[in-house]
């Protein structure tokens, strides 16, 4: 554990808390892509099945349980409790265009052709692109609430901080995992456009609005 990894995890934690608080306090999930949330739940389920086979630490276990539990809680809030506020007309990204290539890629490019390893690889690739339905929704409606922007910023920062963690680990432990690194870089790059708008608009008190 190093400071970048911890900061990344905290950023990820913060993103989820912001999202749940937004939905709970406003009693609405308007502007949030249910499809992205479903992909995240699938990501964490596939990756953290090793909860039952591989003990790392109490921290690791608590975080994994938190990520799985909150991803399903979000889906419950969006598709059941506050279903009436879910903006499904604008949430139209075709997730099969992500799931199919990610599955094939996981079967071809992995560290080891075993069930758990392929699930892990699938989750890494899927996480990299899981935010696309959400970004697509923002671009379709042309705007996002400030709270949604803060959520996206925290979520995007998490993988960026992990990149610094990987650089750190490479120099201090000579450890690196190419699958995680390349997918993490792709994931971060997808947020670049959003980061730019976040710094130039949201932080200056303006609403995130895309030019027409």
């Amino acid at each position: 554990m190093n400071v970048f990894r911890l900061a990344g995890d905290m950023s990820h934690l913060l993103a989820i808390i912001i999202l749940l608080l937004k939905i709970w306090k406003t009693r609405s999930c308007a502007g949030i892509s249910g499809r992205s949330q479903l992909l995240f739940a699938l990501t964490y389920t596939a990756r953290y099945l090793d909860l039952v086979t591989n003990w790392v630490s109490l921290y690791n276990t608590v975080m994994k349980v938190f990520f799985i539990a909150t991803s399903y809680a979000t889906i419950y809030l969006m598709y059941l409790k506050f279903k009436a506020t879910y903006d499904s007309n604008h949430d139209t990204f075709r997730v099969e265009f992500l799931l199919l290539p990610v599955t094939i890629l996981a079967l071809v490019l992995n560290h080891e052709f075993s069930f758990m390893e392929i699930l892990w690889t699938f989750s890494i690739y899927l996480e990299a692109v899981a935010i696309l339905p959400q970004l697509f929704m923002v671009s379709k409606t042309g705007e996002a609430e400030s709270i949604t922007s803060h959520y996206l910023f925290a979520l995007g920062s998490y993988r960026l901080l992990y990149i610094f963690n990987w650089i750190w680990r490479y120099y201090t432990e000579e450890y690196y995992d190419l699958i995680a690194i390349i997918a993490g870089v792709v994931q971060t790059v997808l947020y670049c456009d959003f980061f730019y708008l976040y710094f130039t608009k949201v932080l200056k008190g303006k609403k995130l609005q895309l030019p027409a």
């Binding site: 090793d50 790392v56 975080m63 560290h111 892990w120 992990y162 450890y175 690196y176 995992d177 190419l178």
Partner: peptide
């Protein structure tokens, strides 16, 4: 040679 993956990260 790439080191053995540890998957200790989240």
């Amino acid at each position: 040679e790439e080191p053995e993956p540890d998957h200790d990260e989240l």
